[in-house]
Design a protein around this nucleic acid. Structure first.
Length: 268
DNA sequence: GCCTTATGTTCAC
DNA sequence: TGAACCTAAGGCT
C-alpha cells in the first residue's frame, strides 16, 4: 500500500487524531518496547511525512520514525481498544481513537540530529511545500541511469514508488530506459508538476488514480476496471493486456528487482 | 490450506 | 545482484 501519498495521508490523520494530547505508546510485540517507554504518556506535538517516512514528534529529540516498507500497516479503532491481536509493533492510543502498527521495516525513536541525517538522505518530496524540484533535476541532468530507476531512487526524489513511476512515465510518453540526462529540463518540470498533482489526489482519495478524463472507461467505450490496489491506472500490473489508449500489449521487465510496466507504442 | 506476489529498503557478496 | 526482512491478500488446489 505505501507510496508517498499513503504516508502523507497517515500523517494528516494521526495529526488530527492525536496531536496536542497525551498518548499512550506501547509495543505489545516487544520489539519497540524500550523506545516506547520513553515517549509513553507524553504529548504528541506533530506528525509529518517526508517521502515514505513518517515522523511522530514528541519533542526535538524524541521523534518516532516509522517506515512501512512493503508490508507495514496501520489500523485504527475507537477506544477502548480490544486486546492486540497478532504482532503489534506499536500501539498508540489517544482520547478517542487508537492505532496499531504491524510489520514495518522501521519503528524507532530518533534524536533531532538523526532526523536531520534522515532528511539529508532524501530528495525533494512532491507532496511537501518545502520541496525544490531543481535538486532532483541536478541529479537527473548528470546521470546516465534510466529515468525509471532514478524516479525510484529516494535520494533523487522522495515518495515515488513503483505505481507512480510507471504511470507518470506513461502519462508523459517517456520510454522508461531513457537516460536521466536526456530527459531535458522542461520535460522534467512537466513530470514534476504532474507528480505533485497526482500524488496530492492520492492523499485525498487514499488510492492511486492516474487515468485522464478522456481515457476513462465510459469515454473509451470499455468496461470499468480497477487495479488491485483500488485505483484506475494505465499500465501498472497490466502486462500483456491491451494499452488503454492504443491497444498495444503492455510490456513488463525486471529493473533492479522491481517490475516495470510500459506501453512500447505510447512511450517512444 | 499452500504457494505466489506485493505500492520497499538494507546489507552481504 | 541476490537474499533477507516483515505481513496479508489473491489464486490455486
Amino acid at each position: 500500500m505505501p507510496e508517498g501519498h499513503t504516508l502523507h495521508r497517515l500523517a494528516r490523520l494521526h495529526h488530527r487524531r492525536y496531536a496536542g494530547t497525551e498518548v499512550r505508546v506501547r509495543s505489545p510485540q516487544g520489539r519497540f518496547a524500550a523506545d516506547a517507554s520513553l515517549v509513553d504518556g507524553s504529548v504528541l506535538e506533530r506528525v509529518e511525512a517526508h517521502g515514505k517516512h513518517l515522523l511522530h514528534s514528541f519533542g526535538p529529540d524524541r521523534v518516532v520514525h516509522v517506515h512501512l516498507g512493503l508490508y507495514g500497516k496501520f489500523t485504527e479503532a475507537p477506544v477502548p481498544m480490544e486486546e492486540p491481536r497478532g504482532k503489534v509493533r506499536m500501539r498508540l492510543v489517544g482520547s478517542t481513537y487508537g492505532t496499531d502498527l504491524r510489520g514495518p521495516i522501521a519503528c524507532q525513536l530518533l534524536t533531532g540530529a538523526e532526523v536531520a541525517a534522515l532528511r539529508s538522505r532524501l530528495g525533494p518530496d512532491p507532496l511537501r511545500e518545502d520541496a525544490d524540484p531543481e535538486r532532483a533535476w541536478e541529479r537527473l541532468a548528470r546521470s546516465r541511469t534510466s529515468i525509471a530507476a532514478l524516479l525510484m531512487d529516494q535520494k533523487v526524489l522522495a515518495g515515488v514508488g513503483n505505481v507512480y513511476r510507471a504511470e507518470v512515465l506513461f502519462r508523459h510518453g517517456i520510454p522508461p530506459h531513457t537516460p536521466g540526462r536526456e530527459l531535458g529540463r522542461e520535460r522534467w518540470q512537466l513530470v514534476w508538476s504532474d507528480l505533485v498533482e497526482l500524488m496530492a489526489g492520492g492523499v485525498r482519495s487514499g488510492r492511486i488514480d492516474t487515468v485522464r478524463p478522456e481515457h476513462e472507461p465510459e469515454v473509451m467505450g470499455r468496461a470499468p476496471r480497477q487495479d488491485r490496489h483500488g485505483g484506475e491506472v494505465y499500465v501498472y500490473r497490466r502486462a500483456g493486456q491491451p494499452c488503454l489508449v492504443c491497444a498495444t500489449p503492455v510490456l513488463t521487465a525486471d529493473l533492479s528487482g522491481r517490475n516495470l510496466y510500459w506501453c512500447p507504442s505510447c512511450q517512444q
